[in-house]
């Protein structure tokens, strides 16, 4: 018995709570992501003088106001959403604000679904904590996901 336990612990690296939390967080961030690939036009060298078709007709004397460049708005207003949330928390502690409006955790018990096939599952993978429902799915999980995409 002792020998068997020893074998399990030595053969499989077990992720600790912090690593599992990091993985979870990464998965949640992926749900917010807009693009998963690089910009297709990134390698293009655009000449700045490419004519815009809308402008050509109305370049008359009517333009009295100097247009602010997009740089202006970038500098003035472009802020990461997380900075904004933090700033607001400092300023408006009492609320109601963005942070106080978030729905609280559910009172219902969590459900678990197999990470491989998506059906309800009852087992947890020992090394990574991922859920699986059958030996077949566990095999797939070990071959593909388990400890394979840790940052």
């Amino acid at each position: 018995m002792a020998q068997r336990e020893h074998r399990i612990t030595s053969s499989a690296r077990i992720l600790d709570a912090a690593a599992r939390y990091r993985r979870q967080k990464k998965a949640l961030e992926a749900l917010e992501q807009d693009n998963f690939h690089d910009e297709p036009h990134a390698d293009l060298v655009m000449s700045k003088k490419v004519p815009k078709f809308q402008e050509s007709n109305e370049k008359g004397p009517t333009k009295k106001k100097k247009q602010r460049s997009s740089e202006y708005f970038k500098l003035k207003f472009r802020k990461a959403i997380n900075t904004l949330i933090e700033e607001e928390q400092l300023e408006n502690v009492e609320g109601p604000n963005y942070s106080t409006a978030g729905a609280p955790p559910s009172k219902l018990p969590p459900r678990s679904f197999c990470t491989v096939c998506g059906f309800p599952s009852s087992y947890n993978c020992i090394p990574c904590g991922g859920k699986y429902c059958s030996l077949k799915c566990l095999k797939t999980h070990q071959d593909t996901r388990c400890l394979k995409w840790t940052a």
């Binding site: 949640l28 729905a103 955790p105 559910s106 009172k107 219902l108 969590p110 459900r111 998506g118 059906f119």
Partner: peptide, 27 residues
């Protein structure tokens, strides 16, 4: 197959993917 309804199910159980919030009906 089950993707058809387990995906919108997130609206009702965000905890299925680990978002620590209650779903629409409960809220």
């Amino acid at each position: 197959n089950n993707e058809r309804f387990t995906v919108p199910e997130l609206l009702f159980h965000p905890s299925d993917v680990g978002i620590p919030q209650m779903g629409i009906s409960e809220a």
